[in-house]
Design a protein around this nucleic acid. Structure first.
Lengths: 270, 270
DNA sequence: AAACATCGTTCCACATATTGGAACTCCAGT
DNA sequence: ACTGGAGTTCCAATATGTGGAACGATGTTT
């Protein structure tokens, strides 16, 4: 593959061959916020037309994408089916659930559970005030780690070298005036977070939204995650957040402990 | 592939080559209710050891699977991320939402929205009485079409030949004493449903659970779906279900209409 | 302790499935 | 009729995936 390649710039599809390319296509379609036409995808994933065409046909046949009558592509239902299993069978989420509820009762604000994946936080559960119906709006949502409380907290639980490696791969998008703009700035704050045991997000991702978060880390299970209490700035003062920090830390510690007990110790010692 | 194959039984991986095999593996892991070891998967998808091994490695590298320390595999978080987009960007669900809410207020029972995919119904939304927190328990869940109200209703909206084709591919698992046991029996009921415009599920999937459902079909958008009102037998009588039938049919018709308006007519006429 | 299973991993000659440039069709605009 | 853009099809070349077999590592039985 990539036989004739004049330049040295290798397109990153990873070492996963065909599957990697297919996933890159899926990602391109799924992450766009509207149906993607052939040409849109073509320039998102740089593959020759013929190749992309077959790739798309395969993805459609597998139900991962759906081709609409106007020929554009959108995510298929099979993804939802897969996700259901990945969510409902998630022991970690199950264990954390009651702790989230307790934290919500205590604070009255929205509580999130997120897991670190690459440079992102994937929200795995959420408890909010007005249970406004359904799939809790953002389960499965991915947000950058550098501008979320959970993300920064999770990073602080890693070895310094590991956090640096991840930070190096980030692209710092300035969502608000307070968003970190560089790895250096992020890593500096992470030092503080490591010391304090909790992280704040002061309108770094969205204006008027702030939170306190604490890390959950269970190395035996390769689990790097975090929980947070989030609220609108007008209602939740900086002092209030700080006051909740201890509670969030405690809840995180309890989850960590329970995970260790219920998911069992590791007998392999790989 | 499948070079040396003594028997004539071809393993169904479809014509999607590597991707198909990979998805078969993913399916095997995702649909199991506990982490799968190498050997479990090996006998679920019949692939040579070497092949399977590489396939798994690729799936893990892509984040679709996670390998635990005890070497077993479980669904990865990336699936959740994909699904979030496939769900949150779903126009059909969005349009149906308010109609579901209205139907719920009217009946006080749980309302479901499901879409037909192959021989299954995938639940896309749900409104229930006690919003017991979170991802509405079964969004993304897949149930067989032959034993669910929505499934039977959806099938009734198809051309007879199409319904027969799909029914022929089903495996009839006897969940309860009332579950259809053959395509013939199912197709016979579908004729009645087609005439009535609504379907009942009288404890065919789960004991003590019954529902009324109506089909939603928008051929221009290849949409075959349905909605239902579900309740426990002790609370919801057969007469009560029958009384709601007209309301369910009306809601379904309204959704169908609104989809046609808001998703627009098709200009391609493929 | 030796022999035996079971499980997961690695290896490598082989050929199939993927590749990607190019030609082709269809449609809309000029 | 010409032009340009979008999507689809084709096919020789070969990189990629295949799968049988051998290898280690664990744990179990004799």
């Amino acid at each position: 593959m990539n036989r004739t390649r004049a330049d040295g710039v290798q397109e990153e599809t990873g070492g996963t061959g065909t599957l990697g390319k297919a996933m890159a296509v899926l990602e391109a379609v799924a992450m766009a916020d509207r149906p993607q036409r052939f040409t849109d995808i073509l320039q998102a994933v740089r593959q020759p037309r013929g190749t992309l065409h077959r790739l798309l046909a395969h993805l459609v046949e597998e139900g991962l994408l759906v081709q609409r009558r106007d020929l554009s592509y959108e995510p298929g239902l099979r993804l939802l089916k897969f996700a259901y299993r990945s969510w409902s069978g998630n022991r970690f989420r199950d264990i954390a659930e009651q702790h989230l509820l307790r934290l919500h009762e205590l604070t009255g604000e929205t509580v999130h559970l997120g897991v670190l994946r690459e440079t992102e936080i994937i929200y795995v559960d959420k408890v909010e005030s007005r249970q406004t119906v359904r799939m809790s709006s953002q389960i499965g949502k991915a947000s950058p780690a550098y501008c979320t409380g959970i993300g920064k907290a999770a990073l602080s639980s890693l070895a310094r070298s590991e956090a640096e490696r991840i930070a190096a791969r980030m692209e710092f998008h300035p969502f608000t005036a307070h968003t970190h703009r560089s790895a250096a700035s992020l890593l500096a704050e992470i030092e503080v977070i490591r010391r304090d045991g909790h992280a704040f997000d002061r309108e770094e991702h969205e204006a008027e939204i702030c939170c306190v978060a604490a890390p959950i880390a269970v190395p035996e299970h390769d689990l790097v995650a975090g929980i947070s209490v989030t609220g609108p700035s007008y209602r939740v003062s900086t002092a209030q957040l700080a006051a909740w920090a201890a509670d969030v830390r405690r809840a995180a510690a309890e989850i960590e402990e329970e995970v260790r007990i219920r998911l069992g110790p590791r007998r392999d010692g790989r």
